[in-house]
Amino acid sequence: MSPARQRLGLLALSSYVALLAFAAWDGAVRPAFLDDAHAAVWNGLRALRIQPGAALFAGNGANEYKQEHLCPIVLGHSTSPPPGVVDAPSLLWSCDRSPFPFATDSFQHAMARIFESGHFGILNDDSARRRNAEVGYQLVGDYFCHSPQVTEEVAAVSLLLYRSDVSWRTGQRVADVTWEYRWDCTTGTITGERPEPGALIDAVRAPGATQ
C-alpha cells in the first residue's frame, strides 16, 4: 500500500474510532455545548445506531416501587353462548413464560412487548400511528379474531393488562388491574374500561376458562 493511501486509511480509521468514543459518552455527563454544537452529528449517529442507546434497564429512577409483574391476558368470548348462560370467557393466552426462552419464548416475548408498548403508547415502529396507546391492543385483538392459527371461534376478545409493583424497601406488593380493552371481532371496534382490582382474577377463574 502506498504511504498516501495508508495515511488516508489511518485518517478514516482514527475518525471512526473518535466518533465511536464520542457516541459512547453519556448525554447526562457530556458538556451541553458539545450537544448544541454537534446535535446533527449526534442525531445522525443515533439514527445509524452507532450509539446503542440507553442501558437496558434504564429509566426507573430511584422510586421505591419497582415494576414487578406485567401480565397480559387474552380472553375469548364465544359467538353464541347457550340461552341462560352468562358469557363465560375462555382463556386464549396468558403471560406464563418459560424460563428457557429458546424453546418457546419468542412469541410470548413479542406478545408481552406489544402489550407493553401498546399500553404505554410507544409502539414506535409504526410511524404513522406513533404514540397511539391502542395500537398494540388492536393488533393483538385482530390477531386472535382472525388468525388461522387460533382455532377457537370468538366474537370478541378481552385484552387485559395486569400489573403489580413491589417495594424495594419493604418487599410489599401493590397489585392493580391496569386496563381492560374489549375488541369486537365483527365491527373492529375497541372499548376500554378500568375494572376493579381483582376482577381480572375472577374473569380468569370464570366457568369455562381453560388453560
Partner: peptide
C-alpha cells in the same frame, strides 16, 4: 433487583 423481579 428491578431486572430480576420484572417479568419482562
Amino acid at each position: 433487583f428491578v431486572a430480576m423481579t420484572y417479568t419482562m
